[in-house]
């Protein structure tokens, strides 16, 4: 099923045309609404010393922005890496973490720092 270029309008991929028809379909894909990380007011930060690699944050993340990287933790455990381009900072990962390895940190601290470094993406 091909999504024609002309139908990929900003925001959504909703109109797909096999056989010349417009259909009420959208295909899974990252960031149809643009980079949504800037919606965040709190940023989840993982303490890898504490993390046991249990995958619960990965499982619960409602936006599917946590990737588990096998064997990269300080004790050789699998660790979660968060994609801050799309993480909206909902805090579900921090809430479900059984060892309190994820802290929700005020986003403005990072913004100020990024501004200083001239690396802001907001």
């Amino acid at each position: 099923m091909a999504v024609s270029e002309s139908e990929q309008r900003r925001g959504v991929v909703a109109v797909i045309e096999p056989g010349g028809h417009k259909l009420p379909l959208s295909m899974a894909g990252p960031g149809a609404m643009g980079k949504t990380g800037y919606w965040r007011t709190q940023r989840p930060v993982v303490n890898y010393e504490r993390c046991t690699g249990c995958y619960l944050c990965w499982l619960y993340c409602p936006d599917n922005v946590i990737e588990m990287v096998p064997g990269k933790g300080p004790r050789g455990q699998d660790i979660p890496v968060i994609d801050y381009d799309y993480c909206k900072g909902c805090g579900v990962c921090a809430a479900v973490c059984p060892v309190k390895a994820i802290d929700m940190v005020d986003e403005s601290k990072f913004l100020a720092k990024e501004k200083e470094e001239g690396d802001g993406n907001a």
Binding site: M1, V12, A14, P18, K22, L23, P24, L25, S26, A28
Partner: peptide, 20 residues
Amino acid sequence: PYVMEPGEPKAMGNLVPDEY
């Protein structure tokens, strides 16, 4: 026009802009 099946995830009938 399309088949809803595992392996090729798609959403049908989602919220769209009014002009769509």
